[in-house]
């Protein structure tokens, strides 16, 4: 990728509080700058504020406070104009059940002002490129999950938006369909479409995104390329040990093992952080002597270990 200089999406001090019986601060002062042409991932657990952030960017949620600019257009001031530059694939399958696959794309083009001939051409072209041309006459309920998702993406980019929002694009898909969606998204970037996606799959964020923001409780905890983020935890490997009884004394013993940089207690064991793991395991086991050891697992630095390091929780808690 060349030099990235302009911002496709600028979010400044975005706050969304949902009023109700219980007030929920879903997004709590988010600042974000997504560059033109990049794939940007919002990674976080369910309820972190990812979908609310996308909702605000796509004019569906009115922020309590803040400013959002897409392709230079103020989303809050002029939502109808901003929608010209936005494509959205929501979490839920929102394909028009009363129209077939071709018509889903064709009428979407008509909603964006294309004439009949151009809309037909665009719909045919997209269905071919997304390998859906044989199912052009199929109604949405007759499509598999993977096909429906490809059709949703085809429809979302049919009006040639500058920015595509993908909310959990591979949730509920089988591994093969997931890889197909990843390939499609990479293809979109090659055409210069900026992608902002949410995911709670760390490997998806790691492999697909140019930059990732880790989000939790409505706040961005950290933001950078996947490599930079992994570097933030000092490239540390995480070791989890599950034992029958957790005691402070055992924690101290583990902390004294050479090579262990920190020890965190969990209800059912300990989390150890280390820079190198060569020869470490026997030393750890030695320190554990006499304990009822249940399980040991070792995780190399991943975005998930970054998340755990930042929040003390797992992504899918």
């Amino acid at each position: 990728m060349g030099e990235l200089t302009t911002s496709a999406i600028q979010i400044h001090d975005l706050v969304k509080v949902f009023q109700g019986r219980q007030e929920v601060r879903a997004v709590d002062s988010i600042d974000l700058d997504v560059q033109d042409g990049e794939i940007f991932g919002l990674l976080g657990p369910n309820g972190a504020g990812k979908t609310t952030t996308i909702g605000a960017c796509t004019t569906r949620i009115r922020p309590t406070k803040g400013q959002i600019t897409i392709n230079g257009v103020d989303v809050l001031q002029d939502p109808a104009h901003a929608r010209q530059f936005i494509g959205v694939v929501p979490q839920q399958n929102t394909l028009d059940r009363s129209c077939n696959a071709f018509e889903n794309v064709y009428y979407h083009c008509r909603f964006f002002g294309m004439a009949s001939g151009e809309a037909t051409q665009r719909a045919t072209q997209l269905l071919t490129e997304f390998k859906l041309n044989e199912r052009a006459q199929a109604m949405p309920y007759a499509l598999s999950g993977g096909m429906a998702q490809r059709l949703q993406i085809a429809r979302a980019i049919a009006h040639r938006p500058r920015v595509l929002f993908l909310d959990e694009p591979t949730a509920g898909l089988d591994p093969q369909s997931r890889l197909a969606v990843w390939e499609l998204v990479r293809g979109l970037r090659r055409q210069g479409i900026t992608v902002l996606m949410t995911t709670h799959y760390m490997e998806e964020a790691d492999q697909l995104c140019d930059r990732v923001a880790i989000i939790d409780h409505g706040k961005i905890l950290v933001n950078g390329t996947p490599a930079e983020l992994k570097q933030r935890v000092g490239g540390q490997t995480m070791m989890e040990i599950h034992v029958a009884n957790v005691s402070p004394e055992l924690s101290e013993r583990l902390g004294n093992v050479a090579g262990i940089s920190s020890v965190e207690s969990m209800p059912n064991g300990f989390r150890l952080w280390t820079t190198g793991r060569d020869g470490l395991l026997p030393k750890v086991l030695e320190a554990m002597h006499g304990c009822d050891l249940r399980d040991v697992s070792v995780k190399e630095p991943t975005l998930e270990t970054v998340f755990i390091r930042l929040t003390g929780r797992e992504l899918r808690d």
């Binding site: 964006f112 002002g113 294309m114």
Partner: peptide, 26 residues
């Protein structure tokens, strides 16, 4: 032929009308 370009049919209120017609046609 998927290159990003400006949406085709104008801007502002003329687009509102074509969009409305598109909804009717659907």
């Amino acid at each position: 032929d998927l290159a990003v370009s400006m949406p085709r049919a104008g801007r502002g209120k003329s687009l509102w009308w074509s969009s409305f017609i598109g909804l009717i046609l659907r």
